[in-house]
Design a protein around this nucleic acid. Structure first.
Lengths: 163, 163
DNA sequence: TATTGTTATACTCTATAACTATA
DNA sequence: TATAGTTATAGAGTATAACAATA
């Protein structure tokens, strides 16, 4: 019934448009942009994330840091070695538990993070230029919810917590 | 002015919660899940994406395929070689332009994609389990807009096009 | 026994340059 | 001269397993 000026196509929904696929693609794309933007600063994306996280979170053990950054503890070692040699962070044994190495950002590291944050803001502002402020907030909130549920499935039902 | 039952904190906005950072993190997380889910099928994430895209888009040249999948043409060669050996796709020279290799999925490839799509749906359903249907649609639309603007900056102002 | 950090290794992915054959 | 595909290579990221020190 009604005029059928066009065949009723099943609304194909290509894989290209799946949220999972786009997430993977855009994640790599934004990482690439971070990389080239941070290159003049002398940091790669993982080093950037580690340093900023250390500024945000204060002194932490390597296990906790790795969990936050989604970097395996074994792979974190060399990364932190480099940053330590450059004087951007310090490692010391925790006297309370001598197995732990407490990692902390230095003042040189903090100074560098200021530059990093300005650069990151530029990258993101351009990357998300097709979205207005409200849309960016919506996106951030949705991604945050997904991130929390993947971190810890038990957190899903709890408080709005962090988002 | 007004009762201040709590100090007015500057709403820190940690880097961990930046859309760009979360995009990078979640992209790797979902890729990891695709990898382990597709392992029994015998495909890695890039092979998966290539095969599904070939089913969706039909016969295409390698340049176009690489652009869609965000895989450099030089890196695409070995990937397609493997899939061709396994009989999942075919390559033939374009008689119109003998430089081009036209890539097309085979019936064996199409059959495998059916299984891939079921598996992908499971992965995504779990990965985005903290979002309801409306929210998933919103997320997909926002990501799609971002994806289009990064593909081709000139497309931004045009029609709603593909989202 | 379990955990923290470490070392080592293999594999995947990414980036780049140079080559060939065609146009 | 430019483009499509190819080859080669180096670098970055990821995944695993085993180990020492400590709990």
């Amino acid at each position: 019934m009604g005029m059928s000026s066009s065949i009723d196509v099943p609304a194909k929904q290509e894989f290209k448009r799946h949220a999972g696929f786009m997430l993977a693609q855009l994640g790599r794309a934004v990482t690439r942009r971070y990389r080239s933007a941070m290159a003049p600063i002398g940091l790669n994306p993982r080093e950037t994330a580690a340093l900023v996280q250390l500024r945000d979170a204060g002194a932490v053990g390597q296990q906790a840091l790795g969990a936050t950054l989604d970097i395996d503890a074994s792979n974190l070692v060399a990364l932190l070695n480099d940053l330590e040699v450059e004087g951007l962070l310090s490692r010391r044994r925790d006297p309370e538990d001598r197995r732990r190495h407490v990692v902390e950002i230095t003042s040189a590291g903090t100074a560098l993070v200021d530059e990093v944050m300005r650069t990151a803001a530029q990258v993101e502002d351009q990357f998300f230029s097709s979205l207005d402020e409200d849309e960016r907030t919506t996106l951030r909130d949705l991604l945050c919810r997904v991130a929390q549920s993947t971190d810890d499935p038990s957190t899903t039902e709890v408080t709005g917590a962090d988002c």
